[in-house]
Simulated scan of single mutants.
Amino acid sequence: MSDPLNANYTGCFWEVLSEEGTPGIGSPTSMCHAWSSGPTADLNRYVLGIQPVTPGFKNWQVVPQSLDLNWAHGKHPIPNGRISVYWSFDKAGLLRMEVKAPDGTNGTVHLPVPLKRKLNKYRASGFVSDNKASFVVQGGMNFTFHQMA
């Protein structure tokens, strides 16, 4: 969508983006759509990392990709409420993260990849630990994570 060498490049956002990252050609769509949904959906799914595991987000996961970003914050609507994700790196490169989800849902929270500093010590609440990089969370409980030096 943003690569001028791509055969479908138009200089603006496509209305529909397929799972493969190609434009949604074949359905009534615009290749230059002022309020396109492709980038927004990708921000929720990849940068915030909010993804369904079962239909209706009864079970979900948060698998953020931090890329070169220092922070991300957003909310994703689901059938019985919304999932909110906030993560940031402070000036020392330490991670702070918070995830909120509605009652009646369950999820697994993974730490953003890549981390800016190696994970040694941390504080986390509202979880049952699977391992150092992921946490099982009951909806309705606030998950907080603070990486320490």
Rank of each mutant, 00 (worst) to 15 (best):
Q51W: 02
P4R: 13
H33P: 05
I50P: 01
M97T: 10
Y46E: 15
M141E: 15
R117N: 15
L17H: 01
V99A: 01
I83N: 11
V128G: 07
K58N: 07
N80G: 00
M31W: 06
F135Q: 05
E20T: 10
F145I: 08
P102G: 06
T40S: 15
V113Y: 01
G139M: 07
F145Q: 03
I50G: 03
Q65C: 09
Y86F: 15
S125R: 14
P64I: 03
L94I: 12
K118M: 09
K91A: 15
I78K: 03
S37M: 06
Q51V: 05
L17C: 12
K116C: 09
W14A: 02
T40G: 09
S134L: 04
G49I: 03
N106I: 10
P77N: 02
I83K: 06
S129P: 02
G24A: 05
E20F: 06
S134M: 10
T10H: 00
R96S: 15
L115E: 04
L67D: 11
K100C: 06
L17Q: 11
N80C: 00
L111T: 01
T22N: 09
L111G: 00
V137D: 13
G107K: 06
L111Q: 01
Q138W: 04
G139A: 13
S129R: 15
G93W: 13
V113M: 07
K116F: 08
V53G: 02
H110G: 00
H110C: 02
V47P: 05
G11W: 07
L115C: 07
P79Y: 03
P52K: 01
K100Q: 14
S36W: 04
G104N: 12
V85T: 14
Q51T: 06
T10L: 00
Q147D: 11
Y86P: 00
V47E: 03
L94H: 13
V63K: 14
P112D: 13
I78L: 04
I25W: 12
N6G: 01
A72F: 06
L17E: 10
S134Q: 14
Q147K: 04
C32Q: 02
P55L: 12
V128S: 14
H76E: 07
A124W: 08
V16K: 08
D130N: 15
K100W: 08
E98Q: 15
Y122Q: 08
A149K: 14
L17S: 02
